Amino acid sequence: MLTARVGVGVAPITTYSGRLIRGYLVRTNDAGASWRITGVFPNGIYPWTTAFISPEVGYVIDSTGALFTDDAGRTWSKVLTSGGPLSISVKGRVVWIPVEYCKHSAMQGPCSTHLDTYQVGALAPKSVASVPQEQPFFSQVGPVAGYAFGSGGISGKVYVTTNSGRTWRSMANPCESGQITGGSAVSLTRLFLYCGLGPTVLYSSSDGGATWQRRSESPGDGLGAAVGSSGEFLWQLNPGLWESGDGGRSWTPVSGVTYGPSGDIVTYGAHEAWHVVPGHGIYRTLNGTSWDLLK
């Protein structure tokens, strides 16, 4: 979502068997209550996530590459990446696309993770930086700053960059003797970390990882968990929806919300969130506590 009311999304048209016929770029001006088509993706392309700075200008990715539009999807340009995209984000006018780079193939390896950085409108990366761990969770918190949360074997690592990945600093964290199953950053100073191997425990930091506080035993593994901009409202699916309004200290199940196949929750602001269930509708909360189904 671009604001609490305006957002863009991807809508597929499929056969009953699930085969993709065509993908569309869609827009809402009323917080998801209604949508209209603004663009069509090239044949065979069905992006699974987006990064837009306005309803007209933004990027989309799938596992094979990235596309850019500056006219709400009426036309698309191919974007050069250094590997297969893993995710995408935008802060200000800087786009991050973490990619998986394999010298030969994903099956043959060797593979590594790169961070491709773009100025909005560019079709080639301004910089390509190596990431110290393979396929971590990324959380961009500013144009050039963000975190990589990863788990190698049974040792969870947290890295921070303030220069779009040219350098990374490893941070002490409570998952170092366990496994990171999820992580997110609200800002450069406020972080959330889910530690697994046994019951999943949620930790938070309000000083950029210098110190950590145990919040609670999490009802889920933290994969796909979402947090509002203030850090007070958190949500996750396991497989039902759970929410916290006190920074993760306690969790309450939300009745009547169906789990969608993506497991993704999109947020905007401190307490607005959306969860899409294809073929069923969109669940939405505008106050962090009560959810409505938008058909």
Rank of each mutant, 00 (worst) to 15 (best):
G84Q: 15
I45L: 02
S34W: 02
V8C: 01
V158P: 07
T200Q: 04
Y147M: 08
V266C: 03
N287G: 12
I88C: 09
V141I: 11
I53A: 08
E243H: 12
Y159G: 03
A51F: 00
V10F: 00
I37M: 09
L286N: 11
G153D: 12
E272L: 05
G256R: 04
S151N: 15
G256Y: 03
D207Q: 08
L202Q: 03
I45S: 00
S139F: 03
R22N: 10
V128E: 12
G156T: 03
V40H: 12
G142M: 06
T81F: 10
E243G: 13
Y101M: 07
G165W: 14
P253L: 05
L234S: 12
P253Y: 04
L293S: 01
V90W: 00
N29G: 08
W168A: 05
S184E: 07
Q135T: 11
S250I: 09
N163S: 11
Y147Q: 09
T258M: 14
P98H: 05
G224T: 01
W76C: 01
V266N: 04
V158C: 10
G152I: 12
Q119M: 13
I37K: 13
D264K: 15
V60W: 03
G58E: 00
Y259L: 08
G39K: 10
T81Q: 13
S77W: 07
S155H: 14
L188P: 06
G263D: 05
G178M: 05
L293Y: 00
V90T: 03
R249M: 05
R190W: 00
T252E: 10
G240R: 12
S54Y: 04
G263I: 05
G109N: 07
K295S: 14
G23M: 05
W291K: 11
I265G: 07
L67Y: 12
E272I: 00
G245M: 02
I154F: 14
A66W: 04
L241H: 05
D116M: 07
D62I: 01
H280G: 06
A122Y: 07
G142I: 02
L115Q: 02
V90R: 01
A270G: 10
E56V: 06
P136E: 10
C175H: 10
T117V: 15
Q236D: 10
I180Y: 06
W274L: 02
K126W: 03
V186G: 03
W96V: 01
S205H: 02
K157A: 07
T64Q: 15
R27W: 01
S230V: 05
